[in-house]
Simulated scan of single mutants.
Amino acid sequence: MKMNGSNGLALILIAFGVLIILGKLGFILGPLMGYLIPIAMVALGYFGIRNGSRFWGWLILTVGSFALIGKFAGIIGFLVGIGLIVYGASLFKKRPGVY
């Protein structure tokens, strides 16, 4: 069988469908299944932009990016908290010539 772009897309869609169904049934990947669709949206948006469908590509990429930011909100908040602690602690250090 000769592979072309539509066959590749069909295989990717079938693989994502199988992963989603297995995730809903509780098999493999478990909590990582929630990240699959936003990552796929970002990838599809990127490929859409590269292949000339700029409006739809940017739209899908933006929605996927916001979904990923929502998924990573806890981690981002944790890193912001650590950054604030480190910055606050650095303000206590005395620097030469600064009073």
Rank of each mutant, 00 (worst) to 15 (best):
M3F: 14
N4D: 15
N4Y: 05
G5A: 11
N7V: 15
L11I: 04
L13Q: 05
I14G: 00
F16Q: 13
V18G: 03
V18A: 05
L19Q: 05
L22W: 08
L22E: 07
K24H: 12
F27G: 03
I28K: 12
L29N: 04
P31C: 02
L32W: 08
L36A: 13
I39T: 04
I39S: 01
A43Q: 01
L44Q: 05
G45S: 13
G45Y: 04
G45F: 07
I49A: 09
I49Q: 06
I49W: 09
R50T: 14
S53L: 07
S53M: 08
G57C: 09
W58N: 08
W58L: 11
L61I: 01
L61K: 02
V63W: 05
V63F: 13
S65A: 06
A67Q: 03
A67F: 07
L68G: 00
G70F: 03
G70Y: 04
F72Q: 04
A73N: 07
I76D: 06
I76K: 08
G77W: 06
G77C: 06
V80A: 03
V80T: 08
G81T: 13
G81N: 14
V86C: 04
Y87S: 12
Y87A: 13
G88I: 15
A89W: 15
L91T: 01
F92C: 09
R95H: 12
R95Y: 13
P96Q: 10
V98T: 11
V98I: 15
Y99M: 15
Y99C: 09
